[in-house]
């Protein structure tokens, strides 16, 4: 993180709101994420905490009603998004590919896999000769058996697991440096989930791909990724290496998340987390987790906690750790 050249993706102070009928949903509240080249990072949080919005901001495919209010995104040293007071600078990131949550929705139902792959090869990777070979090669890389047959198939002729592999192949066909995987296994059978994760992990190692894996499962995050960012209601509450997160979870939310992982040892029923994700229309003024937090003090309700570096590379946004460390990231400017 010291060496700027090693950073594959850097997201700074990203704020994304959505305009809806009832008002403005203040979803992302100043997100900071850094991914090193070849590094696998997991983004963990409950459904609706803004994980997908974060990825879509990077890809530049936010919904029409999204409002970018602040933020800067850099991909491989190139600025692709910058919001300042006057204008929004935005361009399509090169070398970033995204794998969507639902492979059925991510594939065009009326074109063959080949037709869709060819377009990606042509426009995302910029390859104009031997397009078909490139496409079939990508299918093979994604460990799809009988790639040349699948090339001629339509999405509906494939199983869910195969469709997700096709989506991964499509991402690979774009020749990326970074893959953003948005809960790639949620819609798959349990037996196939593991295969797909292992595939992603292996591909990232073999091709030195940086990866952001969005998941709601800390277990999956630990198995697949080097570092974990824990996200709660549009804020990063804690991040560290996967090891540290499990060994020494600091944020009350992370602690509850770990406690809620069901254990095979049968030490009793996994605990849930009381309460719900806050209303994005009127989010809490201070820490967004405060209303659900058993340690919350008045301060937590009134001001936003900055990120404290409690041990090396282990950051937490919680006032409980105020005294134990120095402020490193001016996480939020309390606007």
């Amino acid at each position: 993180m010291d060496n700027f050249d090693n950073i594959a993706l850097k997201i700074e102070n990203l704020r994304v709101y959505y305009k809806v009928y009832k008002g403005v949903l203040k979803v992302l509240d100043g997100i900071n994420i850094e991914v090193m080249k070849g590094e696998r990072v997991a983004l963990v949080g409950e459904t609706g905490c803004g994980k997908t919005t974060t990825l879509k901001s990077v890809m530049g495919i936010l919904a029409k009603n999204a409002i970018l209010t602040s933020g800067k995104i850099t991909v491989m040293g190139e600025k692709i998004l910058e919001v300042d007071e006057e204008r929004i600078f935005q361009k399509r990131p090169k070398g970033v590919a995204m794998v969507f949550q639902d492979p059925t929705a991510a594939l065009n139902p009326v074109f063959t896999i080949g037709e869709q792959l060819d377009l990606v090869v042509r426009y995302a990777a910029g390859v104009t000769t031997n397009v078909k070979e490139h496409a079939i090669n990508a299918l093979k890389l994604a460990r799809l058996p009988d790639a040349s047959r699948i090339y001629t198939n339509y999405p509906f002729q494939l199983s869910g697991g195969m469709r997700q592999r096709v989506c991964i192949a499509m991402a690979l066909a774009a020749n990326p440096n970074i893959i953003l995987a948005d809960e790639p296994t949620t819609n798959l059978d349990v037996t196939i989930q593991d295969q797909v994760l292992k595939l992603l992990k292996r591909l990232s190692t073999e091709k030195e791909l940086a990866m952001i894996l969005v998941t709601h499962s800390l277990g999956v995050a630990r198995e697949t990724c080097d570092r974990i960012y824990v996200m709660y209601a549009g804020t990063i509450v804690e991040y560290a290496s996967s090891e540290h997160i499990f060994k020494n979870p600091l944020h009350p939310y992370t602690q509850r998340l770990i406690a809620s992982i069901p254990r095979l040892t049968g030490e009793g029923i996994a605990e849930g987390i009381k309460g719900r994700i806050p209303d994005y229309l009127n989010p809490p003024k201070g820490c967004r987790f405060a209303p659900r937090c058993e340690f919350a003090t008045e301060k937590c309700f009134n001001s936003k906690p900055p990120l404290y570096e409690v041990e090396k590379g282990h950051f937490v946004a919680c006032f409980l750790y105020e005294k134990k460390s120095e402020v490193t990231h001016p996480n939020a400017d309390n606007s």
Partner: peptide, 29 residues
């Protein structure tokens, strides 16, 4: 708003091609 169109946009497939081909064909059914 479907993912496959978002994906096409993210992959840098030209806007015209998306509109005239990738989006139009499924929408004609």
């Amino acid at each position: 708003e479907k993912d496959y169109i978002l994906a096409a946009k993210a992959y840098g497939i030209p806007y015209k091609l998306i509109y005239k081909k990738l989006l139009l064909k499924p929408s004609l059914i």
